[in-house]
Computed example of a mutant assay.
Amino acid sequence: MPTPDFIRDLRNSIGRQLLWLPGVSAVVFDDEGRVLLGKRADTGGWSVIGGIPEPGEQPAETALREVYEETAVRVVAEQVVLVETMPPTHYPNGDVCQFMDVTLRCRAIGGRARVNDDESLEVGWFALDALPELEEYALTRIKRAVEAGPTWFHGMGEEPEGRHFPV
């Protein structure tokens, strides 16, 4: 994802130190139950669509904007499926960011999937039994969106062995 101007401005002030940022991921389904994925220009890997909210932007607005900007597909947000703080990411230029991701299940309502900006190499619809190779990040989000259960919060169950929180 390209770096928004407001983050570049922050970097001018704080340098390369850890920057805490919100992120929004959209798991988009069509009427056939297929999931929309983008092949990222920065990593070359397939993933769910996502990005950084603009200042003052609500998570659902971010999901709708990012999906359209990257794929030309119009969506509606239906449900928050996951909220999770990710481990810090160290970028090749020395920047360090840590994201708190809000993942939304979305439904396609219009448009035709195509590469719509320079963030994606390809975009496409995939049946759940024919997904391309995906990182755990994307697989977890798709799994939670398919389950359509209550919102999953990291740290509130399914903890790694040996890690316990007081009740």
Rank of each mutant, 00 (worst) to 15 (best):
residue 158 E to Y: 13
residue 99 F to E: 02
residue 166 P to V: 10
residue 10 L to E: 15
residue 32 E to P: 04
residue 89 T to F: 12
residue 106 C to R: 04
residue 110 G to S: 03
residue 36 L to K: 09
residue 23 G to M: 07
residue 57 E to D: 00
residue 133 E to W: 14
residue 72 A to V: 11
residue 100 M to D: 05
residue 56 G to K: 05
residue 63 A to G: 00
residue 148 A to L: 07
residue 89 T to M: 12
residue 122 E to N: 00
residue 159 E to H: 13
residue 30 D to W: 07
residue 88 P to M: 00
residue 161 E to L: 08
residue 54 E to I: 04
residue 65 R to P: 01
residue 23 G to N: 06
residue 11 R to V: 09
residue 67 V to D: 03
residue 56 G to A: 03
residue 20 W to F: 15
residue 142 I to N: 10
residue 57 E to P: 02
residue 24 V to Y: 13
residue 36 L to V: 15
residue 119 E to S: 09
residue 35 V to L: 07
residue 43 T to H: 02
residue 153 F to P: 11
residue 51 G to E: 06
residue 15 G to V: 05
residue 153 F to R: 12
residue 41 A to D: 04
residue 82 L to S: 10
residue 152 W to D: 05
residue 83 V to R: 06
residue 76 V to L: 13
residue 153 F to T: 15
residue 161 E to A: 05
residue 71 T to L: 10
residue 117 D to Q: 02
residue 118 D to A: 03
residue 99 F to M: 04
residue 139 L to E: 15
residue 165 F to C: 12
residue 166 P to D: 09
residue 153 F to I: 12
residue 116 N to A: 02
residue 132 P to A: 06
residue 49 I to R: 01
residue 54 E to C: 02
residue 138 A to F: 15
residue 36 L to N: 06
residue 92 P to V: 02
residue 116 N to V: 05
residue 10 L to D: 15
residue 82 L to A: 14
residue 26 A to P: 03
residue 73 V to N: 11
residue 139 L to W: 13
residue 131 L to I: 10
residue 112 R to H: 07
